[in-house]
Simulated scan of single mutants.
Amino acid sequence: MPRTIATVTPDISLTTLLMLCAAAAAAGWIDAVVGGGGLLQLPALMVGLPHVPPAHVLGTNKAVAICGTAAAAVAFTRRSPLNLRMGLRIGLAALGGSLAGAFFASGINSAVLRPLIMGILLAVLVFVLLRPTFGVTKAVGAPVTRRRVLTAILVAGLGIGFYDGLIGPGTGTFLVLALAGILHMDLVTASGTSKIINVCTNIGALVTFAWQGSVLWQVAAPMALFNLAGGAVGARMALKRGSGFVRGVLVVVVVSLLGKLGYDQWIG
């Protein structure tokens, strides 16, 4: 039987809700430009809703994220030439992977989730710092073979899709890296294509979480509006200004969140 939302309805202040909405807007913006908005939004939900079960935090995060990702996907397809067929092929595989990942997410407990998120944040931080050109320079083009397409479907589709349904943060960044590395896309094209795939993973995960009753809709609804606005603005900025500035912002945000989650884990 799906859980009822009433059993986990959080009593949050207006200040906390406004903080979550601001985080959702920033996450939508970052996710649209370079990926990784979930690295801000999910930890913000964990900080703002510390007593809510992890599955409900993950489900609420998906209900919010799908709005900004969809807005960014539409903006990219209108303004940048993308291989929609390729994106949808990988996206369908990712949808299946996210359905499976979300199914297993209900078994995650907070004692495991927080250190896991910290590990992902640290890995992304190290990668970004060691690769100063990430998100700034374009990848070198090369012929794309059928084997590479199949690899992209398995890795970016099933693999990252499963991860997105199970946990989620960093999915956009991982998709950009996979598409650029496997299919030799430049980063703007990879970012746009990743939004199409990410919409599919969010749909798959959200269906599972909603069926289980693990979405706090009263929190997700206002956050989704801010996330949508951030995603639309971020997509336009990605096409006009590049990702150099956002890369710096992402580093600052990741460091701050690592500090906050570390404090909550070992001191608070």
Rank of each mutant, 00 (worst) to 15 (best):
A190Q: 10
T137Y: 05
T15V: 13
L130V: 04
H184K: 10
L17Q: 14
M46G: 10
G192F: 03
A102G: 12
A22H: 03
I120V: 14
S13R: 00
L216C: 06
L150I: 03
A63P: 12
W29F: 15
D186H: 01
P169W: 02
A94K: 09
T151D: 00
I120W: 04
Q265C: 07
L261C: 12
A23T: 11
A44T: 11
V207I: 15
R114D: 02
A72I: 01
W29C: 10
V246Q: 12
L228K: 11
F162N: 07
T193G: 09
A23L: 14
L82P: 14
L206G: 11
G96N: 04
S110F: 05
T145C: 01
V254H: 05
V112F: 15
L14P: 00
V254T: 05
A71Y: 09
R85C: 00
M185V: 00
L99D: 12
L250K: 01
V149E: 13
A232V: 03
L130K: 03
Y263H: 12
P50D: 10
A6S: 09
N61M: 03
R85M: 06
S80Q: 15
I197R: 03
N202T: 12
A220E: 07
F174K: 01
G28E: 11
R89H: 09
V144D: 11
W217L: 06
N198A: 08
A238Q: 14
L154G: 06
L122I: 08
T189V: 07
R3T: 01
I197T: 06
P132L: 07
R147T: 05
R241E: 07
V149F: 06
M46D: 05
V33A: 08
F127E: 03
G161L: 00
V207F: 14
T69D: 12
I5V: 14
S194A: 10
I108L: 15
L49C: 14
G87I: 07
Q212F: 13
I90D: 13
V136P: 03
L257C: 00
A205G: 14
G157A: 04
G96E: 02
M237E: 09
K138N: 10
G35S: 12
A71V: 02
V249K: 00
G230K: 04
V57W: 05
A55N: 11
P53V: 10
A123L: 11
G165F: 03
N198G: 04
P222D: 12
A152D: 00
L45C: 13
A123C: 08
L216N: 09
K260V: 15
L183F: 04
V188A: 07
L175G: 03
G35K: 10
W217V: 04
M46T: 11
C21M: 15
N198F: 02
R114K: 14
T208H: 02
L177G: 02
L154A: 13
V144I: 13
L166M: 11
I182P: 00
T208I: 15
G234K: 13
L14F: 14
G37P: 12
L116N: 00
A24G: 13
I108M: 15
G213Q: 05
